[in-house]
Amino acid sequence: MGKGEFTALKGINLTFGKGEFAGLIGPSGSGKTTLLNIIGSLDVPSDGEAMVLGNSIGKLNSKQAAQLRKENLGFIFQSYNLLQVHTVYENVEFPLLLLKHSAAERKKMVLDALEWVGLTDKIKSKPPQLSGGECQRVAIARAMVKRPSLVLADEPTANLDAANSHNVLQTMEKLNRELETTFIFATHDEKVISYLRRKIFLLDGRVDNDETVKSN
């Protein structure tokens, strides 16, 4: 390692299956966001290999990585990252525009996604007019609208109160079950952890514990 550089992840060996509802859990600096970014092809590992849906992240060029994100991955961020000047409808429609769906297809898919998160009455609102919980539900709809194989959620409840956190988590859990979409969270929020079916504890860039919750 050069001066000023540090190793965020060490000796990680993890496999995620279809339909998992898993979380990377750990304190700040444990490497959970870095790992999530690598899985999301927003970052590349300096060593080792990360395979996502059959693609080796380190070997993808920027176009291929963008293609992977566009077609197969959905992102949910701590601060929602909605496009502020666009309406709720336009925000959710955005991934479909990139995928070149027809206008009729887009309309149906956007309305479906907004129905999943219970925001059909807000389609003309813009993010500044929404509450934090509503913004995060728009972000979920945007992540889910293209029916991705994998959704990556980085601290999705960090800016939400308890009630909104549960609401958002229940929405994601429902979508996970109904659509069999894999969800991977990076979190240290107890509320999120309580919903996870697989909990991967990270400490100083290493996997400290990987446990699967037995379903009732």
Binding site: S62, A66, F75, L83, L98, R142
Partner: peptide, 14 residues
């Protein structure tokens, strides 16, 4: 953040 979001949603930086 918007630029990062575009990239996350499938745009290349170019």
């Amino acid at each position: 953040k918007e630029i990062g979001t575009y990239v996350a949603l499938g745009y290349t930086r170019h």
